Each structure stands twice: as C-alpha cells, then as structure tokens.
Simulated assay, not measured.
Amino acid sequence: MSDPLTRLLADRDWLLADGATGTNLFNMGLEAGEPPEFWNADHPDRIRALYRGAVEAGSDLFLTNSFGGNASRLRLHNAQHRVAEVNRLAAELGREVADAAGRTVIVAGSIGPTGDIMAPMGSLTHALAVEMFHEQAEALKAGGADVLWVETISAAEEYKAAAEAARLADMPWCGTMSFDTAGRTMMGVTSAQLSALVEKLPNPPVAYGANCGVGASDLLRTAMGFAASGSERPIIAKGNAGIPRFEAGHIHYDGTPDLMADYACLARDLGVRIIGGCCGTMPAHLRAMRAALETRPRGPRPTLETITDRLGGFSSTSDGTDDGGPSRERRGRRRG
C-alpha cells in the first residue's frame, strides 16, 4: 500500500470524487473551443477555485485540469510543445490546494483520450499513444499528482497504452471508460470486457470503472456489470448530473442535488468504492452527495427497477452485454 489512494481506500468504505471540470470552467468564463489547460498558466486562481470548490464540498479526491493535455489534442492549437508545462502546472496547483485542505485529499492527474483512432482502424500506433501518455504522465508526476487518472476512454488499445505509460512513469493509476453507446463504449467495449481487461494488464489500475456516458441511471447499470464480474478491485462511478438539454445556446444538465444524492447512495449500495460526478456536477451536487453518503444507512444491493424508480429510465434497452451490440453512435467529446 505504497500510494496515498490505496491507503485511503484501505481505511474507508467509500471515497467521494469531484464533479465536472468543463461545466465549472464554462461558468467561470471559458469560451467554447478554448483549451482549458491554458488556464493553468493564464488563470491559475480560477483553477485553484475549481479544485477548492470540490474540496470544500467534501471531495476526497479531485482531478487536475489536464484532460486534453496530450500532444495530439494540444496540436490542434499549435501548442504540442506545452504538454510538460500545462500538465505540471495543473498538478502543482492541485498539490497546493490539497496540502492546504487539513485532511488527506488525493490529487488525481487527469489523462483523457488522444482524440485519434488507434490502428489498425486509424493511424495512431500503440508506440505513439504510449509516448504521448507517458509525456503527460511524467509532467503530472513532476507537479505532484498522487495518482494518474485515465478517463473517458473508448478503445481497449488506448486503455492498454495508458497503462503502459503509467508503468513507465512508475505511477499508480486509475482508469475509466465512457459507456455511452447502448451500454458500450463508442468502440464497442462492454463492462464485462473492461473488467476482464484490467485483470490481464501487467500493471492493473488501483481502481477502474466508468465516467460520463449518458446519465446516472445508465452509469449505474454499467457499474452493475462491473460488480457482476466478481472482481475485487475497487470500482469507480462518475456519472453525469442527469441528461443534457440545449437551452438558450447553452447545455444544461437536469440532475438536481437530490437526484445525485440518490445516485451516490445507490452506487455505494452496489459496492462502488469511488463515487463522483462528471458533466454538469457542481459543488452543490457534491455537498448533497457527501451528506447523503454520511447520513443514509447502507441499503440492499439495488435492482434495475430500483435504479429507474429513483433516477429515471435508461437510454437504451440493452446494457451492451447482449449480442446485439451498440445501436447508435455518439462522438467523443471533452469531459464536462
């Protein structure tokens, strides 16, 4: 138990993660198309406020503002030379906030997908993906991140590349995929397949699971798939705060703090160990989640019917594990 996250998991039944990055930064003035990672250098006080908002709401860990900080993503802004800078700053600012918290708070270095398609379907080779993830991982490590947090991945090959990069950086890591296409990832991975994958890796993650996706109901159905695999590895659930609605030129999520409090307790009762939010999840949601987790007694393992009664219906009839496969496609996007 050499890393802080493993030690904290050994002492606690559940940990509260953070909420949205993009949603909160847009509320602070981030413009559409503007790389949030640039704010680590240009507006550090706003990034400190982002981190502090999660910590003050009760989060035991938060993700750094580095989701799109790999060379492929930054190349879209002619900023591939800034990978080391923006990732190191993201972690340094996080370290500063965590160390001032007065309790143990984990700084998780966010690593999102490259945005490229892995070979043989696309041009991104395993070696190049490892190189990009490793560059980002080393910078997050230099900035003081406790753990690497690979998230919103769709392809098994990219997940494997990120795992290898974590090994090269000699860092503990966690890894989540986004199951947003009728219970599967955009590249067709099911919850059962991810559970099997993590156990075959030479350096498996400290914890694994799902983030983003469609809504809280769908994400918990995916978590049920992880639990059914029989793995004893800690499960992560970071669901969106409801369903996005496009109103007056902006995306709004309809999940209330009360709904996310119900989601958090259902996740805990499913056996999820790290519970947080993704797109649309604000500090008010996190405060309600923390209060509910601390005060509501543990209940029986919820059924699919319980989940839909409490959180609303699923977006598809399939959980992705049948032979039908995905019935629709959704494009990859920035974690909210």
Rank of each mutant, 00 (worst) to 15 (best):
L194G: 03
P172N: 01
S110L: 07
M260C: 11
R95S: 06
A267K: 05
T64A: 08
E157Y: 00
S318L: 01
L89P: 05
E131D: 15
S59K: 01
V206M: 09
T152K: 11
M132T: 04
A284K: 13
G53K: 04
T114W: 05
D309T: 14
E135I: 02
M289R: 05
H285K: 12
E329Q: 14
S195T: 12
N78P: 02
E305F: 07
D99R: 13
R221K: 12
A182D: 14
D180Y: 00
L201N: 10
S72N: 13
L9G: 07
G242E: 11
A223H: 02
L140C: 04
S178H: 04
Q80V: 01
D42L: 13
E294H: 01
L8E: 13
S217A: 15
T222E: 04
D3R: 06
R52Q: 12
G230Y: 12
N87L: 05
I274M: 06
R52Y: 00
M1Q: 12
E135S: 13
L220M: 10
M118L: 14
M260A: 08
T125W: 09
A108P: 07
N78M: 01
P35K: 11
G183S: 03
S110T: 12
L8G: 00
H81F: 11
I251W: 14
A10R: 15
G239V: 11
G112L: 00
A139G: 07
R333H: 14
V147H: 01
M28D: 05
E138F: 02
E151Y: 01
L168H: 10
A137V: 06
A142T: 12
A129P: 12
Y253I: 00
P244D: 09
T222D: 01
L293E: 06
R333F: 14
A216L: 00
A57Y: 09
G271E: 06
L30I: 08
R310I: 05
A261H: 08
R335C: 15
S316I: 02
